[in-house]
Simulated assay, not measured.
Amino acid sequence: MNAMIDAVRTEALFLSYVQRSQQPSADIIREAVTDTVHRLGEDRCAELVAQEFGEHPDCAPDRMRWARTAVRLAFH
């Protein structure tokens, strides 16, 4: 179950307005994740992440790696 929740959180952060260059705090990350999931829903997050990987295969993997690491730090 934890892996599934982390996956949704990672997708939501990936889609959020938060940028790695901002060096966001754990609070900002949690707020962005919550806002994005409430705004888009879990299924729509997955759809949009897939779309981003299709449209921007050059930069999407780096953002996803950052989002995964940021979610681990902010939520665990």
Rank of each mutant, 00 (worst) to 15 (best):
F75I: 06
E42M: 12
V8K: 13
S25Y: 01
A46D: 06
E11G: 15
C45K: 08
F75D: 07
P61C: 02
P61I: 02
V71H: 10
W66D: 02
R63D: 01
R39S: 14
H38W: 10
M1H: 14
S21V: 04
D62I: 00
Q23Y: 03
M64D: 10
L48K: 03
S21C: 04
L73Y: 08
H76Q: 13
L48C: 02
C45S: 11
W66R: 03
E11I: 00
D58Q: 14
P24M: 05
A12N: 08
R72G: 04
S25L: 07
F14R: 06
V71N: 09
R68N: 09
T34R: 12
L73D: 11
T36V: 04
R20I: 01
A26C: 09
I5K: 15
A26H: 13
F53N: 03
R39C: 11
T36Y: 02
R9G: 08
E55M: 01
I28Q: 15
M64L: 14
I28D: 14
I29Y: 09
A67D: 06
A67P: 10
A67F: 11
A46Q: 12
R20W: 04
Q19N: 02
A26N: 15
A67K: 09
C59V: 15
P24H: 07
V8C: 11
A60P: 01
L13A: 11
T36L: 01
V8D: 15
V37D: 05
